[in-house]
Design a protein around this nucleic acid. Structure first.
Ligand SMILES: [Mn+2]
Ligand SMILES: [Mn+2]
Ligand SMILES: [Mn+2]
Ligand SMILES: [Mn+2]
Lengths: 217, 217
DNA sequence: CTAAATGTTTAGACAAATCTAAAAAAATAA
DNA sequence: TTATTTTTTTAGATTTGTCTAAACATTTAG
C-alpha cells in the first residue's frame, strides 16, 4: 500500500509522461508537487526501491507497469468522484477538483466499482477527461487545441487542459462548456485571440485560453 | 486543521466520555487507538496545546467545546457516509464501517451539507446511531439493552452498540435487523441467553450479544 | 572545448507520530 | 500506613516527508 504522498507523486509522474515522451525530470515533478527538488530526489529513490518507477541518478524517472497501474487507478478514482460530485451532488465543474484530490486516496476497490456502476459507467469526467475502466484502459478520443483551428472551422468542445476554478468559471461565463459546438469567425493576427460563435452568440478568447480548450472536429 | 490522527483521537475521547462521565484515561485511549500509552501521552499534550482537550498530567482528558465540536463533526461525516454506502451503493450494514473510517476525514464542509441533503437528512445511520445535524445537535432517542428485558417484554430493534462485521453478519443471519419488532419468549437463568420471537420465528442469542442490541419499548 | 548556467543529488536537520524501556505517580491491598 | 500493583509519563530512538545549503553532474553557449 502507498501513502497519499506516494500516490500523488505517481499521478504527477504519469501526467508528465503523457505529454513529453522520455524520462520525467526531477524539477518538473518538484514544480507540480509544489516542493523542492531535494525532496523529489528522496522520493524517487523510495519509489524506485518499491519498484513503482525506474530511476537512475540524473536520468529522471519512468513508471514501471506497476507504478503506471497505480497511477491510473488514482486517476480513475479522481474522475469518478468528480462525476459523482457534479451529477449527484450538483456541484459545478469548477468546484470539484480539490475535493476529488482528497477522495481519490480512499482505498476500497469495492467502493470504486460500485461508484462506477452507480454512475452508469461514465466515459468522461466533468472536464472531458477520459475515465479509465477497472482494467486501466481508456478510450482515446483524438482532439485538437482550439488555438490550432482556422477561420470558419467548426468543432465541438470536448475537454479542457487546465482545471483551475478561475479558468473554468471564465469559460462558463462565456458559454464555452462541454459539448457546445462552435465556429471560428475570426482569428486576430496581432495577438492570436480567437473570435468564436457559440449558440449564435459571438464571443472571444485569448490565444492562451484557446490553447486549453480541446476540440473535436 | 487537524490531521487524521488527531481527529481519530478526538473521536475516541468523545466516545469514551459518552458512557463514563469524568476524565478519559490514557490507557483507555491507547486500547481504542491500538497504540501505546506513551504515544497517547504525547498526543494528549499536543491536543491540549491546540486547546482541543483539557489535560493535566495523570488526570486524564476532557474535550473542550472546540474539541467536542470537531469530534461530533467527524462522527457526522462517518454516519452520513455510511448511509450513502448502504442507501445508494447497496453495501450491507456490515461492510461500511471501515470505508467510512476513511471517508470521515475528507475535509469539505460543502460536501457534507450536500451529501446530507442528497440523502434527505437522515436521522440515523445503518446501525441506528443518531446523525448529528450541522450544528452538532442530535435527537436523543432513549433505548434499553436487550439484555435488560424480561420474559414477554416486546420491543423494536433500534440500534447496536458493537459494529464488527462478524457481529452484524450474525444478527443478519438471525433476522435481527434494524426496525424489527420482537418479543422475549424466555430467558435462560443458567447462562442468561435470551429466546426471542421475531417475525413469528423463534431464535436465541447469548447474553453477551443481547447486551449489544438496543431496544425501544 | 572550455566556461557558465542549469539541473540534480548529498549532507545534515527538523516535525509528526510512533515505539521500547525505565522512571515516577497514583491507586489498591495487606 | 507501608508495600505492591497499576497507570502514566519521560527519555531516547525510529520512520516518513520535508527543508536549506553545498557539492556535483549535465547541458548550453561562447
Ligand atoms: Mn480534477
Ligand atoms: Mn477532471
Ligand atoms: Mn461505523
Ligand atoms: Mn455506524
Amino acid at each position: 500500500m502507498q501513502s497519499f504522498t506516494e500516490e500523488n507523486y505517481l499521478k504527477i509522474i504519469y501526467h508528465l509522461s503523457e505529454n513529453n515522451e522520455g524520462a520525467v525530470q526531477t524539477n518538473a515533478i518538484a514544480e507540480k508537487m509544489q516542493t523542492k527538488a531535494a525532496s523529489v530526489t528522496d522520493m524517487l529513490r523510495k519509489l524506485s526501491e518499491k519498484e513503482l518507477i525506474s530511476y537512475k541518478k540524473y536520468q529522471g524517472a519512468h513508471l514501471t507497469p506497476l507504478g503506471r497501474q497505480t497511477a491510473i487507478n488514482v486517476i480513475r478514482k479522481h474522475r469518478l468522484w468528480e462525476v459523482f460530485l457534479v451529477e449527484k451532488l450538483n456541484f459545478k465543474w469548477d468546484e470539484v477538483h480539490d475535493i476529488a484530490e482528497e477522495l481519490e486516496h480512499i482505498n476500497s476497490p469495492e467502493l470504486v466499482e460500485r461508484l462506477d456502476e452507480y454512475l452508469a459507467f461514465p466515459k468522461n469526467d466533468p472536464h472531458g477527461d477520459p475515465i479509465p475502466d477497472k482494467n486501466g484502459n481508456f478510450d482515446f478520443v483524438p482532439f485538437i487545441k482550439l488555438s490550432k483551428l482556422k477561420k470558419d472551422d467548426k468543432g465541438l468542445i470536448m475537454g479542457v487542459s487546465e482545471h483551475s476554478s478561475a479558468f473554468l468559471k471564465h469559460l462558463e461565463k462565456l458559454g464555452l462548456t462541454l459539448g457546445k459546438s462552435l465556429t471560428i469567425s475570426a482569428i486576430n493576427d496581432f495577438d492570436g485571440s480567437v473570435e468564436i460563435i457559440v449558440e449564435n452568440k459571438k464571443t472571444s478568447v485569448t490565444r492562451e485560453i484557446a490553447r486549453h480548450i480541446l476540440i473535436r472536429i
